[in-house]
């Protein structure tokens, strides 16, 4: 074999420390990251000075989109170990005379973001595989007085998990009547304490000015 002739030496930079730092940063980011789940509707939450963090579990979140649709989510994202989600779905199915099989319950459990599907279409929604196809079913939960499914969801969620806490996540531009309707439903069901999801912003008040 002919000997490969090495080219004349170029100055070699030792990249080891750089690689080490990168690895540390990468590990840190990998461990701390929480993936943002795409919500069915784009929602820009308003700002407040509140510093209480969002609860990770025992929560039901109602997403109010700017065009007045209502979506809901239990335990923000994938289900926790206690498996409240399929139980809520089964109870809801019983109320409306729909039976959900094992597969559909698991799909409901796994669904990572908010759902706004009328219960009559829930079965088809859960059996649809593609995300694009599922999107068509997200028409918002009906909540008029004739067919108040939102109230039913809240009621069964509270029956299954008595510690559940209601959170409302609305867009700044959501019309007030929609918000009022949701608040009324909550109030009718005796949910008196609930949380509004906001982003943090600082507010400064000049003390000297006030103390004049």
């Amino acid at each position: 074999m002919p000997k490969i002739k090495l080219p004349t030496k170029t100055p070699h930079i030792d990249m080891t420390p750089m690689v080490d730092t990168f690895a540390v940063v990468l590990t840190f980011l990998l461990l701390t990251t929480t993936m943002r789940q795409p919500e069915p509707a784009n929602v820009d939450t308003p700002f407040s000075i509140s510093e209480t963090p969002t609860p990770d579990f025992n929560s039901m979140t109602f997403l109010l989109s700017p065009d007045g649709k209502v979506f809901m989510n239990f335990d923000n994202g994938p289900d926790t170990i206690l498996k409240f989600r399929p139980k809520i779905l089964v109870e809801m199915g019983k109320r409306y005379g729909i039976e959900f099989n094992e597969f559909e319950q698991r799909e409901f459990e796994k669904y990572p973001s908010s759902m706004g599907v009328p219960i009559t279409q829930m079965k088809e929604f859960l059996n649809t595989k593609e995300a694009a196809g599922r999107k068509n079913f997200q028409t918002g939960i009906p909540m008029d007085s004739a067919d108040n499914q939102l109230a039913m969801w809240i009621q069964y969620a509270r029956t299954v998990n008595p510690n559940i806490q209601a959170c409302i996540k609305g867009d700044s531009k959501t019309e007030f009547p929609v918000v009022k309707r949701v608040l009324d439903i909550l109030q009718e069901l005796n949910v008196k304490r609930y949380s509004l999801i906001t982003n943090l912003e600082g507010a400064k008040i000049n003390l000297e000015e006030i103390q004049q």
Binding site: L26, L29, S48, P53, L196
Partner: peptide, 28 residues
Amino acid sequence: MVDLMCLLITFFMLTTALSKPKVMDITL
């Protein structure tokens, strides 16, 4: 390898939600 790591770090930095949303409790 460094290139790849750079890409991954950029990806994670952009997708991670650093500030968790806050809640405001109200009582009716």
